[in-house]
């Protein structure tokens, strides 16, 4: 039985990757288990300058998920390189995915360039889809032209594979996917969170200080799956599929839709062993569904496969 997958030449022992923003820089989880069992790890979204993020409350519960409005809190790319990556490397020896946020093309480029030079980084994941920041983030991910611009500029500045993280908050996600593929993206990560809201009916005010935030968790899985399925038909570059994955069966389903690997997000926040449990449950699930090599099932649900 073979669980390994390959993303743009980077071989992963298995397709399971904790999603950015739900796993910090790994070391909180390394207190609980050896995180080297993970396929890879997408670390906390990093911007050129340090960011405090949004006011609290930043979290609201929804049926089968949560809304977050953290707003890209991070110590800035230099702080990440100086303080966080050494701690990450001390507990994780595989290539990691560097998640890059930004508010202008220049900012994406300078942050990506610095992270590209770090030896522990295997893939750059460019977040053009954060719903929680104004004047950047998602605004790049909702316009094919702007998405292509960021992709092209980052590609020119770095050597490592560039994956563009797409937002579901668009009318036609395949249009954005095609634009970033044409601009030279090596792959696509999808989906980021869906813009949502809760109102506290006691206080009659929004629960989240920023009023709205990004929905994640099992409740968004069918939507994420549908979008991955559509984008698989629209592009040839590999897709890292994410959105509500919490069981080994979800991994198989997402790969059948067209994902070459998957990320697990919200599940980590309620069960810190979620990724470990999924990885350990995969062999039995593969046996049950008669899958010998996991990489063979990518896109298997599409007609003609």
């Amino acid at each position: 039985m073979d669980m390994s997958v390959t993303l743009s030449g980077v071989r992963l022992d298995n397709p399971v990757i904790p999603a950015s923003g739900t796993f910090g820089f790994g070391y909180e989880f390394a207190e609980l288990y050896d995180i080297n069992i993970l396929g890879s790890l997408s670390f906390k979204g990093t911007t050129e300058s340090p960011r405090y993020g949004n006011p609290t409350p930043r979290i609201a519960e929804i049926p089968q998920g949560l809304i977050n409005s953290v707003g890209l809190q991070n110590p800035g790319v230099r702080g990440v390189i100086e303080n966080e990556l050494p701690r990450l490397k001390a507990c994780f020896s595989k290539p990691v995915i560097a998640n890059v946020g930004g508010f202008s093309v220049d900012e994406y480029v300078s942050c990506a360039r610095l992270l590209d030079m770090q030896d522990c980084v295997g893939i750059l994941e460019i977040n053009i889809s954060c719903p929680n920041v104004h004047g950047g983030g998602m605004s790049f991910g909702t316009s094919p032209k702007a998405a292509a611009q960021v992709t092209q500029a980052v590609k020119r500045a770095v050597k490592k594979p560039v994956y563009i993280k797409l937002t579901p908050n668009v009318t036609d996600v395949t249009e954005i996917a095609r634009a970033v593929e044409q601009a030279g993206a090596d792959g696509i990560s999808m989906i980021n969170t869906l813009l949502g809201m809760r109102i506290d009916i006691k206080s009659k005010k929004p629960v989240i200080a920023n009023k709205m935030g990004g929905m994640s968790g099992p409740c968004i899985f069918p939507l994420a799956l549908r979008m991955v399925y559509q984008v698989y038909e629209a592009v040839k570059i590999p897709i890292i599929g994410m959105g509500g994955i919490s069981r080994a069966e979800d991994v198989i389903e997402m790969m059948l839709a067209g994902a070459s690997a998957v990320q697990v997000g919200a599940a980590n926040l309620v069960d810190p062993f979620a990724c470990k449990n999924i990885i350990e449950a995969l062999p039995a699930a593969m046996e049950k569904y008669k899958i010998d090599r996991l990489c063979d099932i990518v896109g298997g649900a599409h007609d003609g496969n």
């Binding site: 923003g21 739900t22 796993f23 910090g24 909180e28 989880f29 906390k44 405090y52 993020g53 609290t56 409350p57 930043r58 979290i59 609201a60 949560l66 977050n68 953290v70 809190q73 629960v207 980590n268 926040l269 309620v270 810190p272």
Partner: peptide
């Protein structure tokens, strides 16, 4: 504070202090 994970992973409950975030 309203928390996401409760163990430091999600940054859902950050506050500003004189000793940093």
């Amino acid at each position: 504070e309203r928390m996401g994970c409760g163990f430091g992973a999600c940054m859902g409950c950050t506050c500003k202090t004189l000793a940093g975030n």
